[in-house]
Amino acid sequence: MTDAGRAGLHIAVAAALAVAAVLVLPGALELFALINATVWAAMALLALSLAFAWGAGGILCFGQTAFFGLGGYAYAVAGINFGDGALAVLPALTVATLAAAALGWVMFYGRVGDVYMGVITLTVTLILFKFANSTAGEQWRIGAAALGGFNGIPQTPPLNWPGDPANPLTPEQVFVVAVLCLFGCYAAVKLVLLTRFGRVAVAIKENELRAELLGYDVRAHRLGVFTIGGAMAGLAGVVFANCVFVSPSMFSLAYAGQVVIWVLVGGVGTYVGPMAACVALQALASWAGTVPGFDPNLLLGGVLLAAVLAVPRGLLPTAQDLLGRLRPSRRRPAEPKIAPAE
């Protein structure tokens, strides 16, 4: 099967799943469970955004939550000022995209090494966390929107039909929007990987020096991948703001850590893996949260440690390997090796 054919198949399967989710879940789930499912869809989108930056671009971004939170905050601020949630989506995506582009420019054009990149991105999200936490009080407002410090912005406006601010979306409709965003971004990722740009990005990830010597602009391609990832994280923030509300915890170390865990456990270089790991681990964490006296961080940390030590390539590639070994008759293309970065 050609690459395009395989991507088409994946997108078709994803479309079928998305349609099934949209048709079945709103009727089958209770309201609370449905809102939870929307949150998980937003988180899966966040996981997908990092899976793209890390898997396609080889960019170790530990602070994907920076763009997630910025998207959410920009959405809330713009929504309150415009009084119209639909109009706020574009500014939110713009802010997240520009932030990713600016940070990416500093890192890639400064030729910062990949480990430093992880630390810098993590630091950026932690600083945003502190900054957002300190914005309590009247002097911290943008237009009509008070940033609210530790409490965030509880009056984050819901999405509405474009041009009809008096008619906000119901939780069922927000769920549909979330699933459509997730599917759309998945399809976009698959399609981008088929383009020349996507192929060059993967080539750079596989061997940066070789790609550069062949004349490709490593910095520009990395910047492009990182910016797309940032925009997707911003979209995830918008969806998240619609089912919860924006608060500094969107920037927090716990969230930043979880995203990395999802991608690593699911498998760097795959896209379904991180999304599936995201949903599975969220379910696990919310179950662990109900056990009295147990701290979910312990579980998450344990999972991350175990994943790095036992299945460093992630569950999906490992499972594919095992399947391939069980069926030796079918010739499989060699898995792209995820080389440990220097």
């Binding site: 961080n297 940390g301 999972v303 175990a306």
Partner: peptide, 9 residues
């Protein structure tokens, strides 16, 4: 990082 989360928890 996993160790850090586990220690906090």
């Amino acid at each position: 990082w996993g160790l850090s989360l586990a220690l906090v928890g």
